[in-house]
Simulated scan of single mutants.
Amino acid sequence: MEQARAAAEFAYFQGLDHAVPVANGTRALVIALMAASVLAEETGKRALRPGRRALVSGLTWQATAMAPLDRRLVPVLLDVDPATGVVAPETVHAALRDDRDGEIAAVVIPHLYCRMADIPRIAEICDEYGVVSIEDCAHAHGGAIDGRPAGGVADFGTWSFQGSKSITAGEGGMVTTRHAGIVDQIVSITTCGRAVGRSRPFQAGNDRLGALQAAVLRARMRRFYREELPVKPGVLADLEARISGMDGVTALAPQLRVGTQITYKAVARFEPEAFGADTVEDLADALHALLGVEVATLYDPLDDSDLYRPDSDPANHWSDAFTAAADPARYPLPGAHELRRTALGFEHAALRDPAFPDRFAQAVARLRAAGPVPSRPSEVTG
């Protein structure tokens, strides 16, 4: 089957032992939490029962937080370090240490854009407290930290192959795990709960990856790992070295323990006033015109996101306490907002071009020489 071949090839290329293909990255997160319920019972970790908490980054695509909601877990939003965009281990440790009642049952932390979370340390902390750990690897294709591949460090890794990702099948996902004994359960959960090997009965639906998507995925991952991965981290390093000498622009903080840097998007932080701009949105428009690549602001922090609205789903009103606890406004995220106000991301395809760092430097110089950057026109309202 194409799906089995895609899983085997992905595990081989990424350096993992176990991988299960699924319909998409969002479902990968939900399926990991479903399998985590079984893993927790078998290993003595905290049960993932309704109403318990899941620690989640406050700067991520909304699906990272939506998945715990789907399992009736309360997403507790953690702030990020604005120097990297990811949650620090110390932040996870502080939240678990202060959890006097032991209500936190899972930790779901994404690698983001071109920086990796310190998953080795975070997974270690989670093991210490008896909490399931999940690394959201939607941006982490090819990444490795401390000599360990992304997706193989925490209890579970979840992957997206959606159209914008470094590896895409148009749509698709993968669940990976460091636990050989839970693989049959993951496969069972993706196939309507059918008995598979040592799986136990578990109410589930159809979350399988289609054969056509699997075939596309196989071709795309070969191109990424064989042709693009040898190039893109070096281009990113050259770009960040160029940025280090620029006025009004800074790169994200370096990560010395990361062996293979992830390259979903390059990120640069700007001082808009240095270019006569009011906002980074204005700079995005100008840089897009000069570079001819997608230039975009980062995700909206989840406490101020149009898409992450737990209260908008009636299913999340099953308990007044749950609804109140899931309110994203409860969780201040100053680091996430600082990064959102100052940073822009550049599409990962740009990093296939070794000339991109020079083009970027030339574009920044042209912006500075041209004078004030015009503001975006206001939207017309009727």
Score class of each variant (00 low, 15 high):
residue 135 E to M: 05
residue 135 E to Y: 03
residue 135 E to R: 02
residue 135 E to V: 14
residue 135 E to H: 06
residue 136 D to P: 04
residue 136 D to V: 15
residue 136 D to H: 12
residue 136 D to N: 15
residue 136 D to K: 09
residue 136 D to T: 10
residue 137 C to N: 15
residue 137 C to E: 06
residue 137 C to T: 08
residue 139 H to K: 01
residue 139 H to Q: 08
residue 141 H to T: 10
residue 141 H to G: 00
residue 141 H to D: 06
residue 141 H to C: 07
residue 142 G to K: 00
residue 143 G to E: 01
residue 143 G to A: 14
residue 144 A to H: 02
residue 144 A to F: 01
residue 145 I to S: 01
residue 145 I to H: 00
residue 145 I to C: 06
residue 146 D to T: 05
residue 147 G to K: 11
residue 147 G to S: 11
residue 148 R to H: 08
residue 148 R to C: 08
residue 148 R to W: 02
residue 150 A to Y: 05
residue 150 A to R: 00
residue 150 A to N: 08
residue 150 A to V: 11
residue 151 G to L: 04
residue 152 G to A: 06
residue 152 G to T: 00
residue 152 G to N: 03
residue 152 G to V: 00
residue 152 G to F: 00
residue 153 V to G: 08
residue 153 V to M: 13
residue 155 D to P: 06
residue 155 D to G: 04
residue 155 D to R: 05
residue 155 D to N: 13
residue 155 D to S: 08
residue 155 D to A: 09
residue 155 D to E: 12
residue 155 D to C: 10
residue 156 F to S: 00
residue 157 G to D: 08
residue 157 G to N: 09
residue 157 G to M: 09
residue 158 T to D: 05
residue 159 W to L: 09
residue 159 W to E: 01
residue 159 W to A: 02
residue 160 S to Q: 07
residue 160 S to E: 03
residue 160 S to C: 13
residue 161 F to Y: 15
residue 161 F to S: 12
residue 162 Q to K: 12
residue 162 Q to I: 07
residue 163 G to P: 04
residue 163 G to K: 14
residue 164 S to T: 13
residue 164 S to A: 15
residue 164 S to Q: 12
residue 165 K to Y: 08
residue 165 K to N: 12
residue 165 K to C: 12
residue 166 S to V: 15
residue 166 S to P: 07
residue 166 S to A: 15
residue 167 I to T: 06
residue 167 I to E: 03
residue 167 I to P: 01
residue 168 T to V: 08
residue 168 T to M: 09
residue 169 A to V: 12
residue 169 A to E: 05
residue 170 G to Y: 14
residue 170 G to C: 14
residue 170 G to T: 13
residue 170 G to K: 13
residue 171 E to I: 15
residue 173 G to R: 08
residue 173 G to F: 12
residue 174 M to T: 06
residue 175 V to N: 04
residue 176 T to K: 07
residue 177 T to F: 11
residue 178 R to C: 11
residue 178 R to F: 08
residue 178 R to Y: 05
residue 179 H to P: 04
residue 180 A to D: 15
residue 180 A to S: 14
residue 180 A to F: 05
residue 180 A to W: 01
residue 181 G to F: 06
residue 181 G to A: 15
residue 181 G to E: 15
residue 181 G to L: 06
residue 182 I to G: 03
residue 183 V to A: 05
residue 184 D to S: 12
residue 184 D to Y: 05
residue 185 Q to T: 07
residue 185 Q to N: 07
residue 185 Q to G: 03
residue 186 I to W: 00
